[in-house]
Amino acid sequence: MSQFLEISGLKARIDADGQEKQILRGVDLSIPPGEVHAIMGPNGCGKSTLSYVLAGREDYEVTAGSVLFKGQDLLAMEPEERAAAGLFLAFQAPVELPGVNNANFLRTAVNAVRRARGQDELDAVAFLKLARTAAKELSMAPDMLKRNVNVGFSGGEKKRNEVLQMTMLEPSFAILDETDSGLDVDALRIVAEGVNRLRSPQFSALVITHHQKLLDYLVPDRIHVMAQGRIILSGGPELAREIDREGYTKFLAEAEAA
């Protein structure tokens, strides 16, 4: 099977205060091109770890399994190579960069990725035009491009800034790690619309969320339930409502029994 993203038997652990803690215990997941999948699951089930491992964070040690992205061995690539290959992670807690201007940061990132993809770099004028348009579509205040990256941004502004970066970097596969957390309903809609604008046969996404609300605006093709470092159940969009109604306990119990 030659899927777009193919995760097989992925195990990963982290060294927490000298203790090795196994977090992913054999994740199998495949996402075809053009599809949006969601992962739901209780706190501590490994959702965010999966997103970090896919993006290349070094704190996690992959102990087994493989990840193929468009036929390439994703785990062998540096984080910046993954970005150039088309992967984007919208952070659950976007990082503040004091002293780094948001527009300069974004242009540096966009041009690094364009260089790596063999595209022409954008000059300052062309870049600013694109960035301003994209920021406006996300209802971002114009001065957010002039401020330091995420410094003094509200929770909602940080999440919009993530979606702005995603829009500008033109990924083919985006991971949204609880991008809905801390957003009010209006912001949620704006962020979801931002992601929906990117949907195309060439764009896939993995949406990590606790709440069904986001999935009302950003309707997924498949939903996966994760628990104790594994995908224990997969289904259609209707699964989200079932979880919202009944909680995870029922599914966890069924998985135990199986």
Binding site: A55, G56, R57, E58, E78, P79, E80, R82, A83, A84, F88, L89, F91, P94, V95, L97, V100, F105, T108, A109, V110, A112, V113, A116, Q165, L169
Partner: peptide, 18 residues
Amino acid sequence: QLFYLRSRGVPEIQARQI
């Protein structure tokens, strides 16, 4: 901060410099 920059495609040397 380094990982954040690199995850946006900025090579490590440039990310450190920034």
